[in-house]
Simulated scan of single mutants.
Amino acid sequence: MAVRESLLVRYARLYVRLHRVLDRRMAAQGASLARTKMLMFIDKHAPTRAADIAECFGVAPRTVTQAIDTMERDGLVRRVPDPHDRRAKRLDITESGRRVLHQTEPLRLELVDLTFGTLTEEEAAQFDRILAKLEDAVAEIPVA
């Protein structure tokens, strides 16, 4: 049991450290990790609902709404009509938002390479299989 607990602690520490390094390096370039993560999600899933973003990142819908309001004001996203519910809006990324992602992508890729580039192809494939197995196990755990 001690080995499993150690794995959890080390995994959490790695995640927090990676997050902190990327956030600080992006901030040094005038970017925001939180904003970039939301823009990446919107770009990948557009048009998407703010509720989907809140669920993905585990934050309150109000937090997402405030961030979206700011990104819309800055011209990075736009609200578009929901084709299935005329009262609702979905989010889409603008060309300006894509440019912001394009500017931050080299920094993100550098960190990925500096971290996961230390693994051999075989180690990376094995790690990928392990992560998939853990994701499947967590998906089976009842939330409440």
Rank of each mutant, 00 (worst) to 15 (best):
Ala27Asn: 07
Leu8Ala: 09
Gly97Cys: 04
Asp136Ile: 03
Ala88Asn: 11
Thr118Gln: 14
Val21Ala: 02
Leu33Glu: 01
His45Cys: 09
Val138Phe: 14
Thr104Lys: 02
Thr115Met: 01
Leu107Tyr: 05
His84Ser: 13
Glu121Lys: 13
Ala51Met: 12
Pro83Thr: 04
Val59Arg: 05
Val16Met: 04
Val16Gln: 05
Ile68Val: 15
Arg24Ala: 10
Arg78Ala: 13
Leu8His: 07
Pro106Gly: 01
Val143His: 10
Ser32Gly: 06
Ser96Ala: 15
Arg62Tyr: 06
Leu33Ala: 01
Glu122Phe: 09
Lys37Tyr: 09
Val59Asn: 02
Val59Gly: 02
Arg98Gly: 00
Arg10Trp: 08
His19Leu: 05
Leu14Ser: 10
Leu119Gly: 03
Asp82Met: 08
Ile93His: 02
Pro83Glu: 00
Arg20Ala: 10
Met1Ile: 05
Tyr11Ile: 12
Glu95Met: 03
Met71His: 11
Arg78Gln: 15
Leu91Thr: 06
Ala54Asp: 01
Pro83Met: 01
Gly58Val: 07
Val112Ala: 12
Glu122Ile: 05
Leu8Lys: 11
Tyr15Gly: 10
Val3Met: 08
Asp113Arg: 15
Phe127Asp: 03
Leu22Tyr: 05
Thr48Gln: 04
Glu72Trp: 11
Leu8Glu: 13
Leu33Met: 00
Leu101Ala: 03
Arg98Tyr: 00
Ala88Leu: 11
Glu95Trp: 06
Glu110Ser: 10
Val112Trp: 08
Tyr11Gln: 09
Thr115Glu: 08
Asp128Gly: 06
Ile93Lys: 01
Ala54Gly: 00
Pro142Arg: 04
Ala137Arg: 13
Phe41Arg: 04
Pro106Tyr: 01
Val143Phe: 08
Ala31Phe: 15
Asp128Ser: 15
Pro83Gly: 00
Arg87Met: 10
Ala124Met: 09
Ala28Tyr: 06
Asp85Leu: 03
Asp85Ser: 14
Ala27Val: 08
Phe57Ala: 01
Leu101Phe: 00
Ala12Pro: 04
Glu140Met: 14
Asp136Phe: 07
Arg62Phe: 05
His19Cys: 01
Leu39Asn: 01
Leu14Trp: 08
Asp23Trp: 02
Glu5Trp: 06
Phe57Cys: 04
Ile141Lys: 11
Glu123Leu: 03
Arg62Ala: 14
Val3Gly: 00
Ser6Thr: 15
Lys89Ile: 04
Thr104Asn: 09
Arg98Asp: 00
Thr48Gly: 07
